[in-house]
């Protein structure tokens, strides 16, 4: 017999719910968001490789991965379109939870405790910390810059859209924004690896109860308080 209160609110395995276990697990991302995330991630990696090939001659050999220079030039903007669409579906789902709040200011001001791993000194956090929010908004704004400047530089279809002096600026901004997004991408991947137990949130969709307790206690307490607990597993 399951308790009506918890079954009423908690669909089996739905996002932001606790599986009582043991061990306790928390569902952080449903399959939709995970698919979306990986489409975006793969696009970003392909864009990075094809873009770097055209950015610096020492990396031109990367064009071989795409079947030569002509293919690289052709496919790069199309992957950009895919990334833009898939990222902004994700954006629509996540932006509300990424609005900065007071806790984020405190968290960011104690960045040495973050890096030192002394999370007991930090405020309890909701689903996202300031670092994740920075990555989220950084990616979102850079992707907009990249798609706009990318379209201006897309010779095949938009070569006549803007003047040549404008296109020069677009290409400069595009390459600067690309360097910035690659740095943010590295930060994102690194943080996910360094904070052990994070990556499974995007593979299996779940994290351990301890992970949620350590890094996002407010989020965990909120789910528990609302009875979003699936007792069957």
């Amino acid at each position: 017999m399951s308790t009506p209160a918890s079954t009423k609110h908690t669909k089996l395995g739905s996002e932001d719910s606790i599986r009582r276990g043991p061990p306790v697990e928390v569902v952080r991302y449903g399959p939709g968001k995970r698919i979306n995330h990986w489409v975006t991630a793969i696009s970003l990696i392909l864009l990075l490789l094809s873009g770097l090939a055209m950015f610096h001659p020492s990396l031109f050999f990367l064009t071989e991965l795409f079947g030569g220079g002509q293919m690289t030039r052709w496919i790069h903007p199309w992957i950009g379109v895919v990334l833009f669409i898939s990222f902004f579906i994700l954006f629509a789902q996540l932006w509300k939870l990424n609005i900065p709040n007071r806790d984020d200011v405190k968290w960011a001001s104690q960045i040495s405790d973050v890096i030192g791993g002394n999370e007991e000194n930090l405020p309890e956090l909701g689903k996202y910390n300031a670092g994740q929010k920075f990555i989220f908004w950084g990616m979102a704004s850079l992707i907009i810059v990249l798609i706009v400047t990318g379209i201006m530089a897309w010779e095949q279809y938009f070569g006549q859209l803007t003047s040549i002096p404008t296109q020069r600026i677009a290409l400069l901004v595009h390459s600067l924004a690309a360097v910035a997004i690659i740095l943010i991408f590295m930060l994102h991947v690194y943080a996910a690896i360094w904070t052990r137990g994070t990556i499974r949130a995007m593979t299996r969709g779940t994290v351990t109860g301890g992970w949620a307790w350590r890094h996002h206690r407010k989020w965990l307490k909120d789910m528990a308080g609302r009875g979003r607990i699936d007792p069957t597993k």
Binding site: G21, P22, P23, G209
Partner: peptide, 12 residues
């Protein structure tokens, strides 16, 4: 992990 378990048990 234990803290999390306690929290969940309490809520249930």
């Amino acid at each position: 992990e234990e803290e999390a378990k306690e929290l969940v048990d309490e809520s249930v």
